[in-house]
Structures are given as structure tokens and as C-alpha cells.
Nucleic acid binder design. Structure first.
Length: 465
RNA sequence: GGCGCGGUAGCCAAGUGGUAAGGCCGAGGUCUGCAAAACCUCUAUGCGUCGGUUCAAUUCCGACCCGCGCCUCCA
């Protein structure tokens, strides 16, 4: 099945395929800046990219090379280290570990290589040297190095910056030492009042300091994937200036096409507006888990909107996701138990799911097709081919049906509630329904719901608002 | 001001020039001491507003209203 995906530069839907004769698909996804916990908007992008990764694995088995960076030196990471009065490396390690844990909880496959900016200083300096030598970059009075956008005729192709009016009322411009408002920093000279002890030897002729943001991706891509890659992705906000600048740097340095396919996912809105701490609609994965939702529900919710459209996230959408996942988990169990080896024939019921995913990554249509198929299939009559097809679909979407809240590890129930439940069960068995009802109310008041089964009961925590 | 995206049922959300996928919620039913779960059934004559094109528009065109994003280090 071909994977077709919107391409940001040409603004057309195009098929993904490797360009090199080795058949390896080279995929780069801009990663997080590790200075704070990633929020659910960040994870929208990473989950979408994880589905791309999974589709690529299915399409080009064993031939996918996925690289995602960690930005571990920039204004924000340094600022956080200064605020906490701790070494930069300690801060970035802490948030990197949390990022990895969150990604794992969301069932995102780890990239094959995850380079860091601080681990790629030499490669960045080398590129800057080349750019200076070729006349695409210049040293400023303070020893910083800037990229000269007028030296690259293709500048602005991705974001169509030439069609824009750049705002010139810009204090950054005044504070910097660049020749043109559009020029951007490749190397930032060390400033003791801002940078603490964070500095490296710079490109030849430049002061000591640290790399600018954009050059890290160019350098890491060149190092780990080569001069031309097959797919480069990120959130829409990276389109300009980040990706525009990457193209300029890489193509001027290497003289070849940088990325053959660009893809950008849209932002997540919360309650209809941009997420921000001051609006009180800012969520991390931990925030949602603390409210009783499972990470898988978030993953499902993040996939419930078209990746190229803004998605309005609400807590209600997590309710919906939890319920939907439960139904899928039931179906999965039913199929596992009921699938018959009788027929060998191919299964086609889930084809619509892959058709939707392959058609510009239409995840909401894919989920719709999935439910249409599930509703049309009696697990007891499913064939082994149906079971395999279902599992393949679930793999592609990255839904781990064993970790939904229905099956998730139970939080420990307080002993007092456990005791009330025992009393109620006894009362019920001796047909003292008045006492049983009273105890049910008490248990509910303690924040638990008692679910009667045939030969026993379960206690489930009520969700916090 | 410039560039771009969107407005589809109570909520979320696909989609198409020929009459609206799917999920959640809700309602009814089966089951059940109660509650829950599960299963079955139902739930937009309508797709921001007003015009236009067409045999036919939610889908194309125009205007307008509303919301959102980007415009130098935010996924």
C-alpha cells in the first residue's frame, strides 16, 4: 500500500518512497527542547509522527531509519539551568528522562538515533566553517556568526516569506549585530551575564559561544542520515523560520536537495483556544494521568482529528477515547479467543483503515473505518486472517489495547473502602438490600464504585473532575 | 498589516456535485434485588449567513459574519 502524504513545499499530496538505491527510508522528525515537561500539544506531533514511523515500518520493513533530536542547549534550557542554579546537563537529563517515559507511555516507538545538540557541536561548527568559507555566513562585531539569507536565492520557498511583510519593529534586531533583519544566528557569542558556563570553541574567527538553534538539525541530519533525506517533519510552527533556515544552511553547505518531502502537523487547541498556563488549559501527560485518564486515551484523542487541521482537545474527548478503547479491547479479546483457523482466505474488512491512513494520514477517517469494521465483524466468526489484519491495524495506529484504563494496573484501594465492600457483599448475599444500598452509597462517597459480578465484585475509582 | 487554516448533530470529528462515516453523550429495550458492565435499537431533510452557477451544492464561485494559527529560536 502506498503511503501518500501532503508535502509542504509543493503543497501536493505525494507518495513516500526512499530515494537512495539502498532502499533505506531516511526520516527526520524535529524533537523537543528538554527544559520542562512536554505538553500534550507537543505529543500530538510526536504521536502523529509515530504513526508515520509505523506506516513506514510496514511499508519498508527493516529499511526505515528514523532520527529525532533533543535540543539540549538554547535560551530556554540555559535559562532553566540558571533559574534552578544547576548544571545545564543535569536539567536536560531530567527532562529527557521524563520525555522518554511519556513517549513510552504513549506507545511511541523510539527513534533509531536520538542525537543531542551538545553532542553534535563539532558537526555544527564544521558546517558553519563551510558556510563562512562559501560566503553564506559572516562574523558580526561581537563574534557571533550569521547566515546571510540574501546569499541563498531559494530562501522563502517553504514559507513563502517573500510574500510576507516582515515586521521590522523588532527589538531582537536592534540587540543583535546582523546585517539584515532576516539573517539568523548560526553561532551565538558567549555572554557571561546570560550563558553561565555554557560555551564551546567556535568556528574559525568566531568567538567562543554556542550554536544557534537551526544549525543543530542540519548538522545532525547530515551526520546520521546524509545530505538528502526522504522525509522531514515537525509542527507547523517550525515551518518558519526553523525549517526555512535548515534548508538554507544545508543546501548552501552541501549543494544538494536537503529534504525531498516536508510534512507539518497542525497545533492542538484546548477548549477552543491556544494552550497556555495563564488560561488554565495547559496539560501535560502527568496532569491527565492524575485526573484518572490513561495515556492511551490521550493517544487515541490525539489521533481523532486530521493531523493537518487544528484539533480541539477537551477532557470530554478523553472520555470518548476511553470508551472507544474499551470497545476495541473487548473486540481484541474476542478475536483472540474466537478466531478460527478454518479459512485461510485474505481478510478485507480492515482495508479501509489502511486506505485512510495511506491517503494523507487521515487518522479520524481511519478510526471511523476501524469501528465500521469492528461493528461488522462478529469476533466469534472471525478468521485468523481477520485477526492478523486487526492486529496490523492496531499496530499502525500504535494503540496498546492491554493498557487501557479497563485493564490498567489498579490503584490501591483504601482498606476502609475494601472493608465496606466486604460488608456490602455479605449484606447482598443475605438479601439485606437496604443495608447493601446504604453501603453502596458510602463507598461512592469515598470515591469508589462497586461493580457486582456473578461470583464477586470489583472496585473502581471514580474519576476526579 | 501580510500569509494560512477552519466553521458539519448536545460534544469530538470524517466526507462528497446527486442527497450526511465513526466515536462519545442521550433515549428505549434485553439482562439485573439496586447500580454498573455487556448486547440490541434509535438519535442532523441538515453541513456559519446571503447570493450565484447547475437538472442537482453541504460539496464549485462571490460577498459577508465568526473562530484559530504563523509573521525570527513555540510541536
Amino acid at each position: 500500500m502506498a503511503i501518500k502524504l501532503f508535502e509542504s513545499l509543493s503543497r501536493e499530496v505525494r507518495e513516500l518512497r526512499p530515494s537512495e538505491p539502498d532502499g533505506v527510508f531516511r526520516f527526520y522528525n524535529c524533537g523537543p527542547t528538554v527544559y520542562a515537561p512536554a505538553h500534550i500539544g507537543n505529543f500530538r506531533t510526536f504521536v502523529i509522527n509515530d504513526v508515520i514511523r509505523r506506516l513506514l515500518e510496514l511499508e519498508f520493513p527493516g529499511k526505515v531509519r528514523h532520527v529525532r533530536n533533543l535540543t539540549d542547549v538554547d535560551d530556554r534550557t540555559i535559562g532553566q539551568a540558571r533559574t534552578e542554579k544547576r548544571p545545564l546537563a543535569e536539567i536536560t537529563r531530567k527532562w529527557t528522562e521524563l520525555f522518554h517515559a511519556d513517549c513510552a507511555a504513549l506507545n511511541c516507538l523510539p527513534p533509531h538515533v536520538e542525537p543531542t545538540a551538545t553532542g553534535s557541536i563539532k558537526e555544527q561548527v564544521d558546517m558553519i566553517d563551510v558556510l563562512m568559507r562559501k560566503g553564506n555566513a559572516y562574523r558580526s562585531a561581537d563574534g557571533s556568526v550569521y547566515f546571510k539569507i540574501s546569499s541563498f536565492p531559494g530562501y522563502g520557498a517553504l514559507s513563502r516569506i517573500r510574500e510576507r511583510e516582515l515586521k521590522v519593529t523588532n527589538s531582537v534586531f536592534d540587540a543583535d549585530h546582523k546585517d539584515d533583519i532576516g539573517d539568523f544566528a548560526l553561532w551565538k557569542a558567549y555572554k557571561s551575564e546570560d550563558d553561565g558556563d555554557v560555551k564551546w570553541a567556535g568556528p574559525s574567527g568566531a568567538a567562543e559561544g554556542r550554536p544557534g538553534w537551526h544549525i543543530e538539525c542540519s548538522a545532525m541530519i547530515k551526520k546520521h542520515l546524509g545530505e538528502t533525506i526522504d522525509l522531514h517533519t515537525g509542527g507547523v510552527d517550525l515551518l518558519f523560520p526553523h525549517h526555512e533556515n535548515e534548508i538554507a544552511q544545508s543546501q548552501c553547505c552541501n549543494g544538494t536537495t536537503f529534504a525531498r518531502h516536508w510534512y507539518h502537523s497542525e497545533h492542538l487547541l484546548v477548549d477552543g483556544t491556544t494552550m497556555s498556563k495563564s488560561k488554565g488549559n495547559y496539560y501535560t501527560l502527568s496532569d491527565l494521568v492524575a485526573k484518572g485518564y490513561s495515556p492511551m486515551a490521550l493517544r487515541y484523542a490525539l489521533l481523532s482529528g486530521h493531523p493537518r487541521k487544528q484539533l480541539n482537545f477537551t477532557l470530554d474527548s478523553l472520555h470518548a477515547a476511553e470508551s472507544a478503547l474499551k470497545a476495541l479491547a473487548r473486540f481484541s479479546e474476542g478475536v483472540a479467543a474466537g478466531a478460527k483457523a478454518l479459512e485461510e482466505g485474505a481478510s478485507t474488512v480492515f482495508d479501509g483503515v489502511f486506505r485512510a491512513l495511506g491517503d494523507d494520514l487521515n487518522t479520524p477517517a481511519a478510526l471511523g473505518a476501524l469501528f465500521t469494521a469492528v461493528n461488522a465483524t462478529d469476533p466469534r466468526g472471525a478468521t485468523l486472517a481477520d485477526k492478523a489484519a486487526f492486529n496490523r491495524v492496531i499496530y499502525a495506529l500504535g494503540l496498546d489495547l492491554s493498557t487501557t484504563s479497563a485493564n490498567a494496573s489498579k490503584p490501591s484501594v483504601p482498606e476502609a473502602v475494601e472493608h465496606l465492600a466486604k460488608l456490602r457483599w455479605e449484606a447482598k448475599k443475605s438479601k439485606d438490600f437496604a443495608a447493601a444500598d446504604r453501603l453502596r452509597a458510602e463507598i461512592a462517597a469515598s470515591g469508589y464504585s462497586m461493580l457486582d459480578g456473578k461470583d464477586g465484585y470489583k472496585l473502581e475509582a471514580l474519576r476526579k473532575a
